[in-house]
Design a protein around this nucleic acid. Structure first.
Lengths: 212, 212
DNA sequence: GGCTTGATGGTATGTTTGTACCATAAAAAT
DNA sequence: ATTTTTATGGTACAAACATACCATCAAGCC
């Protein structure tokens, strides 16, 4: 046999090609051929590493779900050592706003998959709810801590505020994808809202995109 | 010629069939044949009234966009005579939460179209941004009025709050579609958030779904 | 050094899809 | 009464697609 190839690397390469073509022409227009061309391999190879199209789509979805978790954890980690509650919450929420091309591609395909999974029983796995639920719990925890530390209005309900935050950041991210708002505007709105949640806080990293 | 048929009615009938199959099997899986079967007509008839599939999809999209506007205006109208600012804002926002099967179908297909329009140049018309922008302006107006009437914290920024509200309700609606939350939970969260925006307000129509 | 096995290319096949074409009955127009 | 239109059905067809099949080459194994 030739080169004795690393299967996982090959699979990752093909999946990345799928994500690129999905972001470009839409997930519905993804075909074995288009993926093969984008990956620079023959159709036969895509078959070889994934057998069927359904399994390819499934593998890509799983990879997206995993990377979503990583992305959020990266935000938490990159927020610096012992960050203010407000800053870490903002960092996590801003992950949903597509800024550069890479994150736009990621969130677009992620959204396409999420919507597709509603009607397609083969994708109906709960993979897409795990990350958001985890994030919601995380935010609720931070808000509870912040409230007990006296950083927020004591009357607020941490769980409900966490849900509002998740919904708002998802909605803002979607509106950016749809071209209704710029990423900067979405960022500014989120910034504003957190300013109202944490009354005394001055964000330690104010990017100055407060617009208007 | 036979019966001399009402074209607009026929077209509406076929489009409704399309929306039903799209909600059922996904917009990507909609075919001339599936629409024809669902509508109870021959494929030839679908061709006759829409000529090409692209035009059928476009007509359905336009109909969705129009109905979206109607739905919101209905909410405003049904909010009763001279409703409290908080009530009318809540009524408008709750439109985004799919409660019954009818609204679930509507919002699911609407979302599928919105996401599709990102990658499909043929659907790239701005039809999907008109209604949200109009709603955002409406909300900003109401919030400004409420603030001047002393019903809200005078420090809040009406425009930014309006954007937050739109994003949150879109995000909540999406999470319901994805099965992450029940419609009742989403409603309760929205209710809670408006309670914080309008501190002195007691909603005049409290449905008691405050959950938790 | 022959045999096996992993990696890859090419091609054939059956199915589905959108659309074009042919046909026809029946109402309106002349 | 004949001749247009209008609404409809059926079918044929080319393209695209996923997948199955056949072939080959090279590396590791005995």
């Amino acid at each position: 046999m030739p080169k004795l190839v690393d299967h996982e690397e090959r699979r990752a390469h093909i999946i990345d090609a799928l994500l690129r073509t999905a972001a470009d022409t839409g997930l519905h227009a993804v075909t074995m051929r288009s993926v093969a061309i984008e990956a620079g391999v023959s159709v036969r190879l895509v078959q070889y590493y994934f057998d069927t199209k359904e399994q390819l789509l499934l593998a890509a979805m799983t990879r997206l779900a995993v990377r979503m978790g990583e992305r959020v954890r990266d935000r938490v980690r990159t927020a610096g050592p012992s960050p203010a509650p407000r800053d870490i919450v903002e960092a996590v929420l801003l992950e949903a706003v597509p800024t550069d091309e890479e994150s736009r591609t990621f969130h677009l395909v992620h959204t396409e998959y999420a919507v597709l999974s509603v009607t397609d029983p083969a994708l109906a796995g709960r993979s897409f709810l795990a990350a958001p639920n985890e994030m919601e719990d995380f935010l609720a925890g931070r808000l509870t801590a912040a409230r007990q530390a006296g950083d927020t209005d004591p009357r607020l309900d941490a769980r409900q505020e966490a849900v509002v935050l998740m919904a708002a950041s998802a909605g803002l991210g979607l509106s950016v994808l749809l071209g209704q708002r710029t990423a900067d505007d979405a960022t500014a709105v989120l910034h504003y809202h957190l300013g109202r949640l944490f009354p005394g806080s001055q964000a330690s990293d104010d990017r100055g995109t407060t617009a208007m």
